[in-house]
Design a protein around this nucleic acid. Structure first.
Length: 781
DNA sequence: GCATCCCATGTACCT
DNA sequence: ACAGGTACATGGGATGCG
């Protein structure tokens, strides 16, 4: 009850005349704007502007839209919004009758009869009632009330956000460039999209990257007790630009003033939502009213802070920003048609669902709430036989020279498009090719866009702004594309069709087999293949020959494939636990360009201490600093072994900075759910004893101090409570790890850390590894 | 009582 | 609320040995 009242007050305040006047005068301060206003105003009483839709939220019966204008001004406009949904009456119930019953509800404005598809199959339209509600806050209540009637078979369009409903209807994606018209009451009269789809440069949105330091005795600060000691502001390159420090009150109010002055569109920090809330809570405790958004925020119930409480600005996590940048966030917003504050953080499923809903509604398909049940009955045996993922050809373990890696470009999206795979076109028995599939249509738009930026990127010098923007855009789209395939068969997908998913996999496997056969026919040896890539070699083949192979595969199979890497040396590994077997998805090598390239080994793992990573990298550099295989196997291998001895001794002498030996692991579940005392779990428990609040997903940094100790609590120490003066790392444990890391790189050449630390096993070992495998024909049975 | 093997558990990586 | 496949470290019980 309290919460509800708080929210309503909050919304009312947001719309009060006082507020509107306030922003209006503020905006008019600039002389240029005044001139523009007068000029535009003189004719129609309406004002026009061009800008970008920055943020949208919905409250009460309005949509509030924030625009960044070309003039760098920011304006807030209001548009009407009427929440609505659809219902399908039960068979015996007359639609007209249900309609008049519904109209009795005090919060239902009106009801119309309509014909819509209720499934993505689009077979036949059903008669449905279109129900309009007065205010957003009554939406759930109306649903609850009419549920009790027992007259309704199904509800549609009820589990999307109001802001999605508004934007889908408008058909405008946030961040779009638009021409707007609005009246003196700041009511939006007209909004037309200006096509800037092919722009590389993102809209001119400004950002503020910051970090908050909190003074706390505990590992997790408590907002009631622990003051903010510093707020640091960083520039584009993450260099410190400004520091607010000293007494907390002044830190907070200076920071708030700074935001007001700089007026950034984006607020960016680590754990941005938690940090912004912490700032507001501390301000409240200090009796300050500060404002981080462009509108006043309601700070009555901070623990229930609404997701869009910093209205008019977009808050984004630092990692998202570093990953895909503003350009990537713009891509996500335009794909999902959701405001960037949401689209930037939504996980894959939500992202794809949003766009699918938009596309479905455009086709007159209503959005069912319930996940569709099994569409086709199959036996368990069928499922096991059919539902296999990508195909992997065991690597031929050993050292290879002059190897080409050919990768299909976006294989899964291409398969979806070429084979018309979609929720409504695929059954276990056939694919309907008489009409264009829903999924293919969507995938093609996004794939074309991604490839456009991927290829455009190459036309700009590496490191230029344009290059980065293209990269950020194509990366953001790539991440979405990969998930379209995975999400197609996911149970949580409202349109899901497992057959479609399985079909994609089947075609992918067949494609890979055909690809290998082409390569072999052309006289290449296939030494490894995985899902959408093959590794081939042929004596004396050069770059041209490999590109020619890619071309003939492309022509024969019809999907784009290209030379992704050309290796001077490539090591394919055997399994550590079972050296007779080859290890997939674990290899390392050196490219013709001189660059190292590796997958799956310790160097790629985030839980490997930095010291060991550096060590392994150096080992690779030493090993591959060779002209030919002989040179590598003899001289460089020897040098690498010497380096292992050197590092081994350095560890044993206790000379290494413990900081560099810290291991990071993610805590995947609450500590009490673990069945064993794993090191990171023990470290987590120790941290909790020191007052750290830990949730699943958090990173645990720890150091081995006595790995073999009987008491699990004596084995590790969390990095956060490392006391340099009496903390020693476990030399035995870390020296073991040094040997393990060395073995990954050197065991192919006979190195075995355990048995004979630094001498090769046998002379014949390498020759054995190099024995040629007879060529095989691959076939799907 | 110990060393060793084996397996479930858990995390991370690859495509 | 993305899937499926894979590798490896770890803990701890089972097993074997003396």
């Amino acid at each position: 009850m309290h919460v509800m009242q708080g929210l309503i007050l909050h919304y009312l305040r947001g719309l009060s005349p006082y507020f509107l006047k306030n922003t209006f005068t503020q905006r008019c301060l600039s002389v240029t704007t005044l001139v523009v206003f007068i000029l535009l105003n003189s004719k129609s009483g309406r004002m026009k502007a061009v800008g970008w839709l920055l943020d949208v939220y919905v409250s009460w019966k309005n949509a509030v839209l924030w625009f960044k204008l070309e003039s760098e001004e920011v304006i807030r406009l209001i548009d009407h919004y009427t929440p609505d949904f659809y219902v399908e009456p039960k068979e015996k119930v007359q639609p007209e009758e249900l309609s008049s019953i519904l109209l009795n509800h005090p919060n239902i404005l009106h009801v119309t009869l309509d014909n819509k598809y209720t499934s993505v199959n689009m077979k036949v339209k059903s008669t449905v009632l279109h129900v309009y509600i007065d205010y957003t806050k009554n939406f759930r209540r109306v649903l609850r009330d009419i549920e009790k009637l027992g007259l309704i078979k199904a509800y549609y369009n009820i589990d999307i956000l109001h802001v999605q409903r508004y934007l889908f209807k408008r058909g405008v994606a946030p961040t779009s460039k638009v021409q707007i018209e609005y009246d003196e009451g700041n009511r939006l009269q007209c909004m037309c999209i200006i096509d800037d789809e092919l722009e590389i440069k993102p809209p001119p949105l400004t950002k503020l990257v910051f970090d908050v330091e909190i003074y706390s005795k505990n590992l997790t600060p408590e907002v009631e007790k622990d003051p903010i000691s510093k707020i640091l502001v960083y520039n584009e390159n993450l260099a410190l630009e400004r520091a607010f420090e000293g007494e907390e009150r002044s830190v907070l109010s200076n920071f708030s003033d700074y935001i007001k002055m700089e007026d950034p569109d984006f607020l960016i920090s680590l754990k941005v939502e938690a940090v912004l809330r912490y700032i507001l809570e501390r301000a409240k405790i200090r009796g300050l009213t500060i404002q981080l958004g462009r509108e006043e925020a309601n700070t009555d119930r901070l623990e229930r802070l609404a997701p869009h409480s910093h209205k008019g600005r977009v808050h984004v996590d630092l990692n998202t920003f570093l990953g895909i940048g503003i350009a990537g966030i713009v891509e996500r917003s335009r794909f999902t048609l959701a405001p960037p504050r949401l689209s930037a953080k939504w996980p894959a499923g939500r992202t794809i669902d949003s766009r699918q809903c938009y596309e479905a509604l455009k086709k007159d398909i209503l959005l069912s709430k319930t996940r569709s049940f099994f569409k086709h009955v199959t036996t368990a045996k069928d499922t096991i036989f059919r539902d296999r993922g990508g195909l992997i050809l065991s690597p031929k373990a050993g050292l290879h020279e002059n190897v080409a890696e050919l990768d299909y470009e976006s294989m899964y999206p291409h398969i979806i498009i070429r084979h018309n795979i979609s929720y409504e076109t695929v059954t276990p028995y056939f694919i309907n090719k008489t009409r264009r599939g829903f999924l293919g249509e969507l995938t093609e738009k996004i794939l074309d866009r991604r490839l456009h930026f991927k290829h455009l990127r190459r036309k700009h010098p590496k490191g230029s702004r344009e290059w980065f923007w293209c990269e950020q855009r194509q990366l953001a789209l790539k991440r979405i594309l990969v998930c379209i395939y995975g999400y197609s068969g996911c149970f949580a997908n409202r349109f899901n069709n497992v057959s479609a998913y399985e079909k994609i996999n089947k075609i992918a496997r067949e494609t890979l087999v055909q690809t290998m056969n082409v390569a072999m026919r052309e006289g290449f040896e296939v030494i490894y293949a995985d899902s959408d890539s093959i590794f081939v070699k042929k004596e004396d083949a050069d770059r041209e020959d490999y590109m020619k192979l890619a071309k003939s595969i492309k022509e024969e199979i019809g999907l784009p494939i290209s030379l992704e890497h050309h290796y001077k040396f490539l090591c394919l590994l055997t399994q550590k636990v079972n050296p007779e077997l080859e290890a997939t998805r674990r290899y390392f090598g050196k490219l013709m360009s001189g660059e190292l390239y590796y997958r799956g080994i310790e160097l790629r793992r985030h839980d490997c201490p930095s010291f060991l990573k550096n060590f392994q990298k150096r080992l690779l550099e030493i090993l591959f600093d060779a002209e030919c295989v002989e040179n590598l196997k003899k001289d460089q291998f020897k040098k690498a072994q010497d380096y292992v001895v050197e590092i081994y001794e350095e560890i044993m002498n206790g000379k290494i900075d413990p900081e560099k030996l810290v291991i990071s692991k993610v805590l995947r579940k609450p500590v009490d759910e673990y069945q064993s005392m794993f090191p990171h779990v023990v470290a987590a428990i120790q941290m909790m004893q020191k007052g750290k609040k830990l949730k699943p997903g958090e990173i645990i940094d720890f150091l081995y101090v006595n790995a073999a100790h009987k008491n699990p609590f004596r084995r590790v120490v969390p990095a956060a409570i490392l006391n340099n003066s009496h903390c020693y790392y476990d030399k035995e444990k870390y020296s073991e790890m040094v040997l393990d890391v060395a073995e990954t790189v050197l065991s192919l050449f006979g190195f075995n850390g355990e048995q004979n630390c630094f001498r090769p096993k046998s002379k014949n070992y390498l020759e054995e590894l190099h024995c040629e495998r007879e060529d095989r024909k691959f076939d799907l049975n």
